[in-house]
Simulated scan of single mutants.
Amino acid sequence: MAASNWFGLSERAAVVCVVGFYMVTALVMVSVNKWALNTLPLPWTLLWIQMLIAVILLKVTQYSGLLKMPEIKADVARALIPLIAINVLGLGVNTLCLVYVDTSFYQIARGLVLPFTVFFAFALLGQPSSKLVLASCFTVFCGFYTGVTSEINVSHLGIVFGVASSITTSLHAIVIKKSLGAVDNSTLNLVYYNNVLSLIAVTPLVVLTGESAEVSYRLSTDGFAAFQTFLIAGLITGIFGFLVNLASFLQISKTSPTTHMIAGAVRGVIQTLLGYFAFNDVITAGRVLGIFLILFGGALYTWAKDKEMTAKAQQPTYIPMTQQDVDGEDDDEDDRNRA
């Protein structure tokens, strides 16, 4: 087995560590977010704190010499307006969804990410999908429909925010691809611009939604003690939000897309169990079936795309082996030119 350069770990041990790191950070992020919002339902303030911490941590890595952050330029910022808009909107509806639904239902409410991703890839990028990919999307939709219709006391507003979150998440990947050119195809520069500009964009929303007035009222009447739990939760989620981005990048770079999807599926199961034990969520048969279908559809999609990539990689590339082959190609070219 080839040795990895990660602290002398083997390649397999490094993959296990990366996958474990991703799952732990993602689970902590969702759980602490829910804990913070249960304490004080101030979603935009929580987002603002998380973005502020992410920017501070990026600056710390710059001052420590680990990474180099770019200077914010006005022309680049203008080019990234669509990315910032979809990012802020996506984070907002994502957090609002978590306000109105419990942790175990959160995955169902946001379960339409895959179908919307395939749809927008076709509608905006002209990328067709195979029958197997469409079957995986249909399976995911059945899981979403089963989970939603089997619930009696579920928040309809939470479902609306969940569907909106699925749409923005699907569009986000497409917008990122189009935005990389504005930052010379540097992922690090895009992350820095995204966090700084999103922080600026969220700041007026904290005021316009009345959350800043609520924070001032809490501090003036109850003092820091009442706000302490929320601030601690915001600090923890800010740090772990930064780590989730790092963990996702590490996992994708060190593993295959199939492993990444399997890790996400296992995380979804653990997240459901965590909601049951930590937040006393009610786990119904319809909810379990819905989550299973969503995870199965995601796994089927990953398998289908993996098959497509393998088949494409195995397609033979024609290389002229004889002078007659080369001459034949030249004759074909001459015929085309005369035509």
Rank of each mutant, 00 (worst) to 15 (best):
V118D: 00
V269I: 15
T259I: 14
W303K: 11
L208C: 13
S256Y: 04
E151L: 05
S104P: 02
L83D: 00
I81R: 14
L9R: 14
T146Y: 03
L66G: 11
D281Q: 05
Y217V: 10
A135G: 11
V163K: 06
Y106D: 02
I252W: 06
V133W: 04
I152Q: 13
G126Q: 12
A123W: 12
Q50A: 12
G297M: 06
I56D: 12
G297K: 01
S212C: 09
C17W: 10
V288E: 03
L246W: 03
V196A: 03
L37W: 04
M1V: 09
S10M: 09
T103H: 00
S64K: 09
L132P: 00
V215R: 02
W44Q: 05
K254T: 15
T237W: 01
A182T: 03
E329L: 15
F240A: 04
F279H: 02
L96E: 03
V326D: 03
L250C: 12
G65Y: 05
I200G: 00
A225M: 09
K178N: 13
S155Q: 10
A313R: 10
Q251N: 15
S166R: 01
T103V: 15
L235W: 05
K131P: 02
L42T: 00
L293D: 00
V28Y: 05
Q107V: 09
S170M: 07
T302E: 08
V19K: 00
G210I: 11
T187I: 10
V55N: 13
T322E: 07
K254E: 09
V113E: 00
Q314C: 04
I232V: 15
P41F: 03
D184R: 12
Y192L: 09
S248R: 12
V133S: 10
N280S: 15
W6T: 09
A339V: 06
S104N: 03
L235E: 02
V19W: 01
S10Q: 10
R287Q: 15
N38F: 05
T237A: 06
Q324C: 05
D330F: 11
W35R: 09
D325W: 12
S212N: 07
F249C: 06
G8S: 04
A304Y: 04
I81A: 14
L57R: 05
